[in-house]
Design a protein around this nucleic acid. Structure first.
Lengths: 200, 200
DNA sequence: GCCTCAATGTAGGCACTGTCAACAATATTT
DNA sequence: AAATATTGTTGACAGTGCCTACATTGAGGC
């Protein structure tokens, strides 16, 4: 005698589960992901998710992929807002968007780079993350062609950028960039150092 | 009728538990830490650890602290092996030791920077990690005084270094620094970029 | 329309976990 | 020696991921 007579077959439970999980990732700061809790919140029995995901790791992997997709989108958008001929500003815009994404979605970002899902690793070679990395390579190449950046193997420079921004994002998420340690506007400072290393 | 008639009171179970946990951190690549498993391996009942640690998080926190202590020690040792007046080599030695530590103790390193323990964060202000950070600051200051490094706020430069090396370590642990993406010797490349950003 | 059948939901059970309370054995203090 | 505090064990509880058995439903062939 329930008011909302939900049909026995949910329709698109898979999407709902993913959506719910993403919501919880946004809300729960503590991040201890529980499949049963997701099911509960989705208003479905605790075993229902198993009809759509072989196991917990599969769901996590899918969430991570969605995270990469969203991040790539935001990075690309941020890049376009900058004047394309000024490499420095393009670069800054990208880095800023990157860290901002991490700060806005800490649990998701953590998940994306967490080995929790186990076999996520094959996935880092997959298209979306690779494409994101490609954005960075393109900027660096352009910068070198314009003579703004040092002539170095772009892959190495890309590694430097990636490590720096990734590290900064994680430290920031973990709340370790305390002013006592690192001063205020640590982000600008760190990015400046990185840029000065890239520039000729 | 056991051969080794272990006394009912273990003696220093606390140390043994920590030791066992560290061993397991070294061995288990997958890292899903289980208190009961530690107790089992220590040859003790599953609730025994609770006489020495209020909860799982407390043990993790202690392990993290030990990790920081060991790392600080190794970094300090590495620094001393380099000619003290050549900032560049001192810096490189430190960075190298840092990444090497992470690569040698992936699970422990992860734990040190994982919010798993919850309230670890208060601890990042504590002496040992702070002292490690101090090592870095000292190098940078010396470098600036010698005129080898750009005159910038050291804290900002330190943030750049920390983020870069931390990020690189994590990416390396996670096996994301694939040659297809980042080339071979990505480490030297990234460090070079960082150094060129620090140097005048 | 009806009957099969695969898809998708539920219920319950298994082994495991962190944690706690009750109890047992030992050290320590008085 | 007796009382007490410390440190171990056992057994329980709720919660987890995952599995199997079963219920309900939608889609396709007749």
């Amino acid at each position: 005698m329930q008011e909302k007579e939900r049909p026995y077959h949910h329709g698109d439970l898979k999407r709902v589960i993913i959506e719910t999980a993403l919501d919880m990732l946004r809300e729960e700061r503590g991040w201890q992901f529980t499949l049963r809790e997701v099911a509960r919140r989705a208003g479905v029995s605790h075993a229902a998710p198993y009809k759509h995901f072989p196991d917990k790791g599969a769901l996590l992997t899918e969430l991570a992929l969605l995270g990469f997709a969203q991040m790539r989108q935001e990075l690309a958008a941020a890049i376009e807002t900058a004047p394309q001929n000024e490499v420095r500003r393009v670069f800054f815009a990208m880095a800023d968007a990157y860290v901002r994404f991490g700060a806005a979605n800490p649990a998701l970002y953590r998940l994306m780079f967490s080995a929790d899902a186990g076999k996520i690793h094959d996935l880092y070679l997959s298209e979306i993350p690779m494409a994101t990395f490609g954005l960075l390579l393109a900027i660096l190449e352009r910068g070198q062609q314009q003579g703004v950046l040092r002539q170095r193997p772009v892959q190495g420079q890309a590694a430097a950028c990636w490590a720096q921004v990734h590290g900064f994002t994680l430290l920031s998420i973990d709340g370790l960039l305390l002013p006592e340690k690192v001063g205020d506007n640590a982000f600008e400072a760190a990015l400046t150092t990185l840029l000065e290393g890239l520039e000729g």
